[in-house]
Structures are given as structure tokens and as C-alpha cells.
Design a protein around this nucleic acid. Structure first.
Lengths: 123, 123
DNA sequence: ATCTCATTTCGTTATTTAGCTAAATATACA
DNA sequence: TGTATATTTAGCTAAATAACGAAATGAGAT
């Protein structure tokens, strides 16, 4: 039961749920993209992703200084279906979807610079 | 997304997960039976059931002074399947299953009396 | 109406969790 | 090597949550 509980606990937070929903649509996101979407501190996002990774819901890969997260393989299929069904029609997830489109137009390096200085995107 | 989050939050507690698992096997349980299984105070169980009811995962009926809970109708089918799959093989749930068999041999009135006095079951 | 009993609600306490900043770590570059 | 940068970890604070006992509520019996 611990494993199940670890999963439900990791999904008992709105921001982590939003990340999962985003990763159900986009194959992979890097920390700074998630930071941009959630509008949280990098440290906070890192911690959230750690919880999701520990729950075996996401996995990560490093590309130099960049860390990318994607849904874990394997991801419980029935859980994914339930999430998809119950989140469909959610205005918050839809808002994230739109925001993510513009975020993905920036390359991560530019995003990070922007986050550091809180200035306009270089895109 | 609020509805989904309400559900994941309600399932982010071990005791509430145990109740759901029990109700997936037994059609209906009354408060005192749940109290006996979880080994918690009546007030605590009542509060847990209130959370599950608010999340639309369980529903209740009254029979005089007795309140019985069962899985809500409708209960998200894909969620149920995931829970069943991920909880199968859980030693804690299996232990509850065994304990519940003996609990169900007592009628609720006797259970309540026992809980009040912490003495032997009248069965 | 009064008393008994099962359950719920309320208030309190201890524990857990989400958010942040600062420090630490890992990677890249000059 | 030193500097810059992305991310993670550690520590702190405020908020949320689980457990309990007491009080309130509802149902049954006399």
C-alpha cells in the first residue's frame, strides 16, 4: 500500500498535478519551463519534481546543466486514463496548456535568463 | 481540477485508503466497524468518512442510530481499477481483510458496546 | 419529557507539507 | 583555475492535516 499512497500523496498537490497534466501532453519539459508555467521558485519546483520522481511518476535526464523531466516509463495506464478523464475540461489545465505553448517558443537558456532577471523573453 | 484534487487529497491518507479498499470488497460498513478495523477514535473515523463523502467517493445511509457507508454510486471506474491493481498484494490490506471477517461476525450494537467498554465481544 | 446511545462537530495539539532563501553541487566556459 | 549558470539540498516559516476528547446532535427507549 505504501507505493499507492506515495502516488496519491504526490498527486495531492495542485502544482504537481499540473505538472503531470502538462507532461501528459508534452513529451518532456525542463525545470525552467516548469518554473515558468507554475510561477514558483526554482527550488520549489525542484522539490516537487523530486517528490514525483520518488513516486515513480516522472523520470529525468540531464543535458549539461539542463535537467529534463518526462512521465515515467512505465506509468500506470489505468491511473493515466483516470487522470485524463477527470482533468479533461479543467479550466486551469487549459490555461496551462495555452501558457505552455508560448513557453515552448523560448529555448530554455533564454527562459532561465529571463527568470533570473525578470525581463522580457529574448524570443 | 478541484474535483480531481479533492479525490487525490482524500486518498492521500493511509486510513482513508484502507476504508476505500475495504468498501471495494464489502458492500457496506457502519462507523463502528470501521472504527474497529482502523483502531481509531469514533470522532476521527467520522471525520475521515466526511472527507471521503465530500470527495464523492462514499455515500451513507442511516438506520436509526447507525450510519452505514458504501462506495459512492457512481464511483470513477478507471480509478477503481487502478486502486484495485495497485493495492492487490498489499500486506496491510490483506491484514485488514482478515480482521474485517471477524469484525463482521459481530453485530454493530455489540461492537459499539465493546468499543465503549473495551471488553470482549459478545459474539 | 428524560435518559441512553451512535455519530458528528468543534476545539486543541502534534505532525506534515508547501513556499522561500541561501548554500551546496554539478556542468560549462574562458 | 576561476567564474558563471542550472539545479538540488538544507533550513526556516506558515499553512494544512491527522489524532484526540469534549460538546452537540439525532435517534430510540421508557
Amino acid at each position: 500500500m505504501e507505493k499507492t499512497l506515495t502516488i496519491t500523496k504526490s498527486l495531492a498537490d495542485g502544482n504537481r498535478m499540473r505538472v503531470i497534466a502538462a507532461l501528459m501532453e508534452k513529451e518532456e519539459l525542463c525545470v525552467c519551463q516548469i518554473v515558468e508555467m507554475l510561477r514558483l521558485a526554482t527550488a520549489t519546483v525542484s522539490r516537487h519534481m523530486s517528490i514525483l520522481q520518488n513516486a515513480r511518476l516522472v523520470q529525468s535526464r540531464k543535458d549539461g546543466k539542463w535537467v529534463y523531466y518526462r512521465l515515467a516509463e512505465p506509468f500506470p495506464e489505468t491511473l493515466r486514463i483516470w487522470l485524463f478523464e477527470s482533468l479533461s475540461g479543467s479550466p486551469e489545465i487549459q490555461a496551462d496548456r495555452v501558457l505552455l505553448e508560448s513557453i515552448l517558443e523560448c529555448i530554455p537558456a533564454d527562459l532561465c535568463r529571463r527568470q533570473k532577471k525578470r525581463k522580457g523573453c529574448a524570443c
